[in-house]
C-alpha cells in the first residue's frame, strides 16, 4: 500500500483531467445529493453522502436483455462506457462489491459490461454523515481503485489497484508520495447495530412492530445500494406483435407481488414476513452464501422510509 498527498485546491485539476476521457460521476447537490455525471469539478459535494446510491449505473432500473422477432432472441448488451466514480463512501464501495458477488455467480453479461469499465474512487467519511449510519457494525472491505482521506488542506490518497496506481502515475505533478501513516479506517459514530447474529430472532414477535409501521412502498429496497432483486417482462411491438423486447426491472421483496405465482397464490403474504425476509436476506441469507452480510450499513433504507422504520433499533431492542 502506498499513500500520496493531493492538495485540496488541486482536486478540480485532477477531476478535470479525468473528465477528458471519461464520464465522471460524483455526488452533486440537487434537491438531495445524487450521483450524477458532472460538467464541472466544482459540482462535487462531499459534505453528505448521496441520498440515492450509485447502483443504477451498473444495475439500471429498467434494462433490455433481448430483442426478439419470432425467429430469434438477440441479446442487447450495453455499450461499455468509460466512467470514473468519485466520492463513493466505504459503504457504497462495499455495496458494489457485494452486488458483484451476486451477479458474478451467474456471469451476468449485462452487469459485467456496465461494471468493468468503471473506475472507483472512494471518499473516506471523516465522521458518520447521517444519524442512520451503522457501517461500523458491519464488515467493510478494502475495495477501491483510489481512496481519498479528507485532511485539513489536502487528501491522503491510497491506491487500491493497478488502475488506481496508473492514475497516480499519469499525473505525477498532482500526487506527492508521502510517508504519513494510513489513517484509521473506522468511522466514528457508526456502530449502532449491536446484534451480530440475527438467526435466533427469527420467531421474535417484534417483527410485527416494524411491519405495522410499513406502508409497503418499496423505498427501502429501491434506495438500498445492495438490493439486487429483479423481474423480467416481455413487451411486444404494435407493428408486429411477434417482435419485441425482453427486459428486466428492479423489484421489491416488500410487495406481495414478489412471490405471487400463476393462479394468484402469494407465498410471502403477511407484511411482517416480507419485512423480516428483507432483513434476513440482508444480514443472514447472503452471509450463508457469500460469507459476508449483504447490508453495508449505509442507513438509506431508514432515511428514505416515510415512517423511518429503524430496523437497527428494532434488532437491538429484540436482543435485549
Amino acid at each position: 500500500m502506498v499513500l500520496y498527498r493531493l492538495e485540496k485546491k488541486r482536486l478540480g485539476e485532477l477531476i478535470g483531467r479525468l473528465m477528458l476521457d471519461a464520464e465522471v460521476i460524483a455526488p452533486v447537490k440537487k434537491d438531495v445529493v445524487r450521483f450524477l455525471p458532472i460538467a464541472h469539478p466544482e459540482e462535487i459535494h462531499l459534505e453528505r453522502n448521496a441520498f440515492f446510491p450509485a447502483k443504477e449505473y451498473f444495475f439500471p432500473q429498467h434494462q433490455t436483455l433481448f430483442q426478439f422477432d419470432g425467429k430469434s432472441f438477440a441479446p442487447v448488451i450495453p455499450k461499455p462506457k468509460k466512467r470514473v466514480f468519485f466520492g463513493l463512501r466505504r459503504c457504497d464501495l462495499t455495496a458494489i462489491r457485494h452486488q458483484d458477488l451476486a451477479f458474478e455467480e451467474v456471469k451476468d453479461p449485462y452487469y459485467e459490461t456496465m461494471r468493468k469499465s468503471a473506475l472507483l474512487i472512494g471518499y473516506h467519511c471523516p465522521k458518520a454523515p447521517s444519524p442512520y449510519c451503522f457501517c461500523g457494525s458491519l464488515p467493510q472491505i478494502e475495495f477501491f481503485d483510489l481512496m481519498f482521506f479528507d485532511q485539513q488542506t489536502g487528501f491522503l490518497v491510497e491506491t487500491g489497484s493497478e488502475k488506481g496506481e496508473q492514475i497516480v502515475r499519469e499525473h505525477p505533478e498532482l500526487f506527492a508520495l508521502t510517508d504519513l501513516p494510513k489513517p484509521d479506517t473506522k468511522i466514528p459514530g457508526a456502530d449502532r447495530l449491536h446484534v451480530e447474529n440475527i438467526a435466533p430472532l427469527y420467531d421474535h414477535p417484534d417483527w410485527k412492530k416494524g411491519a405495522d409501521q410499513c406502508l409497503s412502498c418499496g423505498a427501502c429496497t429501491a434506495l438500498c445500494p445492495t438490493c439486487y432483486c429483479f423481474e423480467i417482462h416481455d413487451e411486444v411491438s404494435t407493428a408486429n406483435p411477434d417482435a419485441g423486447k425482453r427486459s428486466r426491472s428492479w423489484s421489491s421483496c416488500q410487495l406481495p407481488g414478489f412471490t405471487r405465482v400463476a393462479g394468484d397464490h402469494v407465498f410471502r403474504k403477511e407484511r411482517d414476513h416480507r419485512f423480516k425476509h428483507r432483513i434476513f436476506h440482508q444480514l443472514e441469507y447472503f452471509k450463508e452464501k457469500h460469507g459476508v452480510p449483504l447490508c453495508v450499513g449505509c442507513g438509506r433504507c431508514i432515511e428514505a422510509c416515510p415512517t423511518r422504520i429503524d430496523f437497527v433499533k428494532l434488532l437491538n431492542e429484540m436482543k435485549t
Partner: peptide
C-alpha cells in the same frame, strides 16, 4: 391480441416513483 392480457399490478405508485429517483 396475443391472448395474454397482462396481470394488473398491485404495486403502489411509490415503486415507480422511487425508481424514477423522486424524493418522497
Amino acid at each position: 391480441v396475443k391472448g395474454a392480457i397482462p396481470k394488473p399490478t398491485d404495486n403502489p405508485v411509490c415503486v415507480e416513483c422511487r425508481q424514477n429517483g423522486n424524493v418522497c
